[in-house]
Design a binder for these strands. Structure first.
Length: 442
RNA sequence: GCGGGCGUCGCCAAGUGGUUAAGGCAGUGGCUUGUGGCGCCACCAUUCGGGGGUUCGAGUCCCCUCGCUCGCCCCA
């Protein structure tokens, strides 16, 4: 029988990697709690139209990256490629936006049909924040600050915050015409991709990675010049507020986000240590989206951060170690057992240990039926603090042997024989006191 | 969708056309029927991602295919 593999771009997270993810999730949760942001969970599957309308028909995400299929009722369904559209849909559907401003966060898998590469999978994970119903420039800054502080708290270094303003829809329409007019005159100097985009999405030519195109762009009209005064003032307000918070940023006039709903503030937090896909967190303002999806006019800002890219950053540095240190949670107690009576008794004792009213213990029960020596070896490797030895003799007497597992294993602290009832009543310190004293040294 | 690199045991990894595919780690059993580290012994790829071809002979050369990986596009 041929063994099966996961689908391309769908990765398994093995027990060795899972602790890093848990740490990120726990830290994010704590930061959201402190900022009074509530969690929202939405389905992974939505009606295709939600994304087509929300993200924009012309975008790459909608045009060629969606996992779309028909369900049994011939409805076109799509695995969510991002979180914002779903959150907005849910907020409208359940009248959240009507109840006032919402401070929401979400997390979970997203799906995009692309060729996998470093920092990019087909199923990937995001944690995101959405502020619905906030127009003040300070809301942009608070959103950014929460992302920044979260990343700092996680200990990610070498990050840079890039900031730009996309202005209003009017600003962009006006600028687009101007840019196209200018680029038309230099069409032959553009790379093929950019020539294509001249017709489909000219603004995106601005962040082309082609050096020749970038050189050409140096002389092109800029979006900043085309901005209305109010747009410009709004952006300055965001910048000064960031400065007051001492959050370093760089203005990047070429920063254009690929999703249609962004306007005014757009930002990315990038790392130079990530390779080609350098953006860890990206977001911006999307004042038109709620209305676009059938809700009342509602200003909004948000961002999403890519979990696997964050994990990549947090896992660097300690990749020298041959075998990554196993960070799996170790049990407190490893139960070594033998004999039919002993084994049966151990099963029961392990359970009662986990259910202790005071200080429940994490217990791993050896189920191998191997000899004591083998089991004790395994006990040491498990990382447990104590081993509990239980054979027929101890079981018959209602006792257990307690063994401290610390140390190099050369010196043999004596076991303590104690009654099972006593063992179950003792706290960790008392157990240490009992088992920790070597009887007679080496 | 388009380019580059790579595919030998769960992981790392020798092998560059000649009879039997090193080694290390991990794992399993034993030395040691109920006591720990270390050590020693044994077992652990009829087969080199898959298929076809060249050759007396291929893991080693050629073709196709699948997969992984990095990059382009785009994004988190």
């Amino acid at each position: 029988m041929k063994s099966l593999q996961s689908l391309r771009g769908m990765v398994d997270l093995l027990p060795a990697q899972t602790p890093v993810w848990q740490r990120i999730e726990a830290t994010a949760r704590e930061h959201f709690r402190r900022a009074a942001i509530e969690e929202i969970r939405t389905p992974l599957l939505e009606v295709t139209e939600l994304f087509a309308r929300g993200i924009g028909e012309a975008t790459d995400v909608v045009g060629k990256e969606m996992y779309t299929f028909e369900d049994r009722g011939a409805r076109s369904c799509t695995l969510r490629p991002e979180g914002t559209a779903s959150v907005v849909r849910a907020a409208i559907q359940h009248g959240l936006v009507a109840q006032g401003p919402q401070r929401l966060w979400y997390g979970g898998p997203m799906f995009r049909y692309e060729r996998p590469q470093a920092g990019r999978q087909r199923q990937f994970h995001q944690i995101g924040l959405e502020f619905l119903g906030f127009a003040d420039p300070r809301s942009d800054v608070e959103a950014i600050a929460i992302a920044w502080d979260l990343l700092m708290d996680l200990g990610v270094g070498g990050l840079s915050l890039e900031l730009n303003t996309l202005g209003t829809l009017d600003d962009r329409v006006r600028y687009r015409a101007e840019l196209v007019r200018w680029l038309e005159q230099h069409r032959e100097r553009l790379d093929p991709d950019s020539q294509q985009r001249l017709a489909t999405n000219p603004l995106r030519i601005l962040d082309s990675k082609n050096p020749d195109t970038q050189a050409l762009l140096a002389g092109a009209p800029t979006l900043a010049e085309a901005l209305a005064d109010t747009s410009r003032e709004r952006f300055e307000a965001v910048c000064t507020a960031l400065e007051r918070l001492a959050i370093p940023y760089v203005r990047n006039p070429r920063l254009v986000r690929g999703l249609d709903y962004y306007g005014h503030t757009a930002f990315e937090i990038t790392s130079s240590q990530l390779g080609a896909q350098a953006t860890v967190c990206g977001g911006g303002r999307y004042d038109g989206l709620v209305e676009q999806l059938g809700g009342p006019p509602t200003p909004a800002v948000g961002w999403a951060l890519g979990m696997e890219r964050l994990v990549l950053l947090l896992s660097q540095g300690r990749q020298e170690g041959a075998q990554a240190p196993r960070m799996a949670p170790s049990p407190d107690v490893y139960v070594v057992n033998r004999g039919t009576h002993g084994a049966a008794c151990a099963l029961d004792l392990a359970r009662r240990c986990r259910q202790r009213a005071t200080a429940p213990l994490a217990v791993q029960l050896d189920l191998s039926g191997a000899g004591f020596d083998k089991q004790i070896k395994r006990a040491r490797r498990s990382g447990a603090r104590w081993a509990l030895l239980l054979g027929d003799e101890e079981a018959a007497a209602g006792q257990v042997r307690l063994m401290a597992l610390e140390g190099d294993g050369v010196s043999h602290p004596a076991d303590r024989l104690l009654s099972q009832a006593e063992f179950l009543s003792l706290g960790p310190e008392e157990l240490d006191g009992l088992a920790g004293t070597p009887a007679g040294g080496a």
